[in-house]
Amino acid sequence: MFAHGKTVVQRAPHRVFRSASVIKLLIALDQLERGDDPLLGPMLRSSDDGAASELWRRNGRGAIVTRMARRIGLTETAPPPVERPGFWGYSALSAADVVKVYRYLLEDVPAGTREKVLGELRRATRCGTDHFDQYFGIPRALRRPWAVKQGWSGFGDAPGRPCLDGAVPVLGPALGIGRPVLHTTGVVGDKIVVVLTLQPAGTSFANAYRQLTALTREVFRAAGE
């Protein structure tokens, strides 16, 4: 957790994970340097994979990650492997780098870009377009105001229990290919919160959802919040 100009709670901040949909933050920031696009809303609010794939293809695939990592100063973020160029979710990142992305968004981009991205993240829908419930971690554990970008991968193409929105691989062992990942990231009030997890093989989405939400609460307690 980053708050009041410093890191207040951290554990293994430089461990590298596969990004899942958290990389959509970089896809969005890269696109906004060219201009707004109607695909950005569904990609950021509802984690729409089709929208992400189109922007990924259009803007150079892994070159997006390379450009934005250089611009922001990310040291543990990398594009997917060359043999998987279309797999944006196999990009690599660390919690420390995700904090840098949010700091860049809050401190360094034009106001219009900042409000576009944060505005969509504040309106994150409970259900992603793939019918997974994305209100784990920050949205479930912490009070608004929050603006979140979640990530999930390895739980199959559809959840065991589809979400009903009543309210609105780098390949290899380091990235846990073959094991599920579940990430919660975002801005909560004046704090940046990033919790990235690699789950044991076979973990259900429901169990990972509960565990990550509990872990997010623990992070806030450890920070004295």
Rank of each mutant, 00 (worst) to 15 (best):
A96G: 15
V219I: 09
A20H: 04
R103E: 05
E225F: 11
G178R: 10
Y135S: 15
P110G: 07
V101K: 02
S153K: 14
K116W: 03
R67W: 01
D37W: 00
R217N: 02
F17Y: 15
L212W: 03
R70G: 13
Q10F: 04
M43T: 11
G50A: 11
L142A: 08
Y135T: 15
H4R: 15
A222F: 03
R45Q: 12
L29M: 11
D108W: 10
R123Q: 14
Q134M: 06
Q31T: 14
R34P: 06
A201Q: 12
S19G: 07
I64G: 04
V22L: 01
R114L: 02
D48P: 03
Y90V: 09
R103W: 03
D36C: 06
T125F: 08
R114N: 05
S53Q: 14
P169E: 06
A167I: 09
V82D: 08
R161C: 04
A51P: 00
Q199V: 10
G151W: 10
A174P: 08
E107Y: 10
L171H: 12
L32S: 08
D97K: 11
V98F: 01
S19A: 15
R15M: 05
S46M: 12
G160M: 12
G186M: 09
D157C: 10
G86H: 11
K24L: 05
V82L: 07
S21H: 11
D130E: 13
Y104D: 06
P38C: 08
V109L: 06
G178W: 02
L171Q: 13
L182M: 12
S46R: 14
D48H: 13
S19M: 02
A124H: 04
G41E: 14
L118N: 03
D36Y: 07
